[in-house]
Design a protein around this nucleic acid. Structure first.
Length: 289
DNA sequence: AAATCAGTCCGGTGGC
DNA sequence: TGCCACCGGACTGAT
């Protein structure tokens, strides 16, 4: 499950191999075409496969940036526009000279969008579960949820934003885990890093947001930011489907204290799993209060 | 009116 | 080995 660190890793790799390049052709898989034809919105959101191809073909990649868990590619054809991509559950980009060079079968079998660059290389988007998204936008405002995202967690204003949002009445009685996984409160923190941060802070994931002191909330925010940075340095977390653009796994999963654990890595107590906002949340009933 | 719930995009996985 | 329920980011639309 790609979260901020995984997306950051991908962006850092895509950037140097794609900036200034022109897209000479675009391929969309038959699977996606059939899905679109039956009226579904598989991966290509609010755009038909042919229009997607047409729009991107011949365009130049001016910039590649991460915003929360989204990848923004600034494109230029006659005018500038955005190609916005979310990796969803299992999205992965591969930078290869041939689709056969994608290292694992399970990714090769689910390539849905291929951008052929003018240097002959391919940027191939594989998505096993097809929860990923591609949008062509004139500006961010064409997809309003982008405007509602919290600042980047490493930006100066992010802490103040977090305190403000998490203290708002609508979050008063919400479990803290649900609050820190809300992209309008903090950007880029999903189930994995929320779980890890709460474990480090010894906070029970169901604790109501209003029952955490300002001081502890500041520390929690700092713990989240620190874990995200730590994971970026570790090349992200590979649970099952995350790979970087060379097909390599990250190593942050080896440093988890709680996510996916049967027993607490600190006290050895059997962990518990509860559902919060329809996602499994694991915690140590002894350490986390 | 606001909050909550279900639906949407799916293949992999684990239980029986 | 076959079936099927379950899982999940994040939005969208309905109640």
């Amino acid at each position: 499950m790609p979260e901020l660190p995984e997306v950051e890793g991908v962006v850092r790799q895509i950037r140097p191999v794609s900036i200034g390049k022109r897209i000479v052709s675009v391929d969309v898989s038959d699977t996606i075409r059939k899905s679109k034809q039956s009226g579904k919105e598989a991966i290509l959101k609010r755009i038909e496969a042919d229009d997607f191809q047409e729009r991107l073909t011949g365009s130049q990649i001016l910039a590649v940036e991460r915003r929360s868990k989204y990848i923004y590619m600034t494109m230029k054809n006659e005018q500038e526009f955005l190609l916005v991509n979310h990796l969803g559950m299992s999205g992965a980009w591969f930078f290869v000279d041939s689709l056969l060079a994608i290292p694992e079968d399970k990714f090769r079998r689910h390539v849905h969008v291929v951008l052929t660059l003018d240097d002959g290389n391919l940027l191939a988007f594989s998505d096993i579960r097809r929860f990923g998204e591609m949008r062509v936008l004139e500006t961010e405002a064409d997809f309003p949820p982008l405007l509602l995202m919290a600042p980047e967690p490493f930006a100066d204003e992010a802490l103040e934003w977090f305190l403000q949002q998490s203290g708002s009445p609508k979050f008063r009685n919400k479990p803290i885990k649900e609050v820190i996984m809300d992209g309008t409160v903090i950007s880029g923190c999903g189930n994995i890093y929320a779980t890890e941060a709460l474990f480090r802070m010894k906070i029970h994931p169901k604790r109501a947001a209003s029952r955490i002191s300002r001081k502890r909330k500041i520390e929690l925010f700092q713990a989240i930011a620190a874990i995200l940075l730590e994971s970026i340095d570790a090349g992200g977390s590979t649970i099952s489907d995350y790979r970087n653009i060379n097909g390599e796994s990250g190593s942050m999963q080896n440093r988890f204290g709680m996510y996916g654990k049967k027993v607490c890595t600190i006290c050895g107590t059997e962990t518990k799993t509860v559902k919060i906002a329809s996602r499994a949340s694991v915690y140590c009933p002894s350490c986390q209060k």
